[in-house]
Design a protein around this nucleic acid. Structure first.
Lengths: 355, 355
DNA sequence: CTGTTAGCGCCTTCAA
DNA sequence: TTGAAGGCGCTAACAG
């Protein structure tokens, strides 16, 4: 079936609508209508054309279609690190919704680099993407797209650029809840490891941490805060991870009295967990640990980690859905959907020893 | 910078080469040459055109370029489940290599469905993708592509379709090594959980298991084999997982004497591990466990899992590299690269109790 | 109901 | 060194 004649080593010209029409004995327009299902076409003609197309293995050329002015049926997706399960789940959700709607997903991984993100945005523009979903790293990418009138939905993070929709998780309340849980258990000296506090989710998570402390009347101390910059670290393989591990160790050394730790994302949580394990620190005996973002390993380790669960896959689906709506409906009031995370209390948190 | 005049709510026509040429006072051809850097153009003209293009926020239209006959600079990537860290890593490696070479990656997740894979393949064809990377699910997808002369590199699995390159991990020797490790420890009753033995990697992994047994003179029994079909399970969320968990439980019940378990991929390993934990079975005390495919959680749990490590990210990079070569060089003898996995012996395997 | 015509935006001969 | 012309494959008017 579909025996496209495979000649001269597979580099033969593709079957075009012209050939299908010729073979079916009609004009190209008629053939186009027949295959596209628009306009009037005699049923027997429609069938004949369809049959010829199948026999010849005809596949319409989207570039021609796109050029002609219709939509490209392409959506760009820009994430920061596919190896991070968070982004993988996000991408999976996005792909799911988009492919169900007949869109193609063009994937770009910016590795946390603003320039790569902007390059990706330009590539989407060049492809005439109908819309773009991105977890912003700086403003340029979003700016370029919005300026050119491409619908954008920001996911997880927000660049602050006006004119785009967004879907995010309530980082502040999620982390506040996590820290309040620790406070309720009696912890007063709570250290925190964040990634990129200057903007993005890290900022809000730190805010939530501070809010919880303030609310409980516990003084805030910068010394308890470690701000990593994982995504922007040295390009070398694991170059940044080493440094990060050292930094975590230093944080623990500097805060021997800290009875609890709050890790602001899954990567950071892994680092902290490894370091605690490495130094034989018992959890939750010596220190309690909470993570923001719940990943597989967290409920497989012993003790299981208390974590703030984010509906990541759903967030991806949701964002893709918003984008499709925007693409259909055209410009209008932009919206931001905030999803609520959920604290999963498990074994890694308990009352401090000498509480 | 790049102040593309954002008019009428962002749906204005894009800046075209025509406008750039007009604004710069040249013909379109000259403008094209100036921006493309081909052919003769007076230097001052080139600069002026460039400047105008930047000012107007001109972005060349790839559909037009593609239509004109040049390459689309698009590569298709078809995987079976982005939420599986294996595929996420693979995709990350692919994206890395491809984007560095200036290609765009179109991502399709087929969820293990042959039809969706074939649909994806047709979409790649329609986009005139320069090449496609895929972890095959059945033959149709690869067939369609190869018939139409699109270069294909199969990754991890092989469809058996002739005319495409491939990169895979030596599943048979990897699993053989894993099982030999168990045999050396003194295990004789080794149960195995595989995914999709009928073809794909599961088949080879089972082969490796049998080869190891045969070599050691240990009889093979079908009763010790559980063949799951995770990817083809019911579409519903976790519908398949439930059944799978029960099946694993049944396997354990049916083989109370099994002192060791071999899980043929990371998903299966997770199921097995969960079930062992659920029934309070001590590892490696009561049962040893080895996994094929080493994922993060395996060296975070206690005891750490002995696992066959696959260079997944590298496999992705490698496959993408092969594809680019094939795209450049054109048709020729197809190649298959087999990468060697590595057994990481850790705490989940030990001599059987009454050995 | 069907065919003719006219581009979409770009690049690439071919003349000038 | 530059411009004019043609066409990639498709579709949307508009006649017939």
């Amino acid at each position: 079936m579909g025996n496209a004649r495979a000649r001269n080593g597979g580099k033969r010209a593709r079957v075009t609508l012209h050939e299908v029409a010729e073979e079916a004995g009609t004009s190209r327009s008629t053939a186009s209508r027949a295959l596209g299902g628009h306009g009037y076409v005699a049923e027997h003609i429609r069938q004949r054309v369809q049959e010829v197309a199948d026999r010849l293995g005809y596949v319409p050329d989207v570039s021609a279609r796109t050029l002609k002015g219709r939509s490209s049926r392409v959506v760009g997706l820009l994430v920061s690190d596919l190896r991070n399960p968070f982004y993988a789940q996000l991408a999976a959700g996005v792909e799911q919704t988009l492919s169900a709607a007949g869109y193609q997903v063009v994937l770009v991984d910016d590795h946390g680099s603003e320039e790569r993100a902007a390059d990706g945005a330009r590539a989407f523009l060049a492809m005439r993407a109908d819309g773009v979903l991105l977890a912003p790293v700086g403003r340029p990418a979003t700016e370029v797209l919005v300026e050119h009138g491409t619908p954008v939905v920001e996911v997880d993070r927000r660049s602050g650029v006006r004119g785009c929709d967004a879907v995010a998780i309530d980082s502040e309340s999620g982390s506040r809840e996590a820290v309040e849980h620790l406070l309720e258990l009696g912890h007063r000296d709570i250290a925190v490891v964040v990634d990129e506090t200057k903007w993005a989710t890290g900022k809000d998570r730190l805010k939530g941490y501070r809010a919880a402390l303030r609310h409980a009347g516990v003084p805030y101390s910068r010394q308890r805060v470690l701000d990593l910059d994982l995504s922007l670290g040295p390009a070398g393989p694991d170059g940044g991870e080493r440094d990060a591990a050292h930094a975590v160790a230093a944080l623990l050394d500097a805060n021997p009295g800290a009875t609890a730790l709050f890790a602001a994302n899954n990567v950071v949580a892994e680092l902290v967990w490894q370091e605690l394990k490495r130094r034989g620190c018992s959890v939750p005996g010596d220190r309690s640990l909470v993570s923001f973002d719940d990943q597989t390993w967290m409920h497989m380790v012993e003790p299981q980690l208390t974590a703030v669960r984010q509906p990541v896959y759903d967030m991806g689906r949701r964002a893709a859905g918003m984008l499709l709506e925007r693409v259909e409906r055209g410009p209008g009031r932009t919206e931001t959907h905030i999803l609520q995370p959920e604290l999963m209390v498990r074994g890694s948190t308990a009352a401090p020893r000498q509480g």
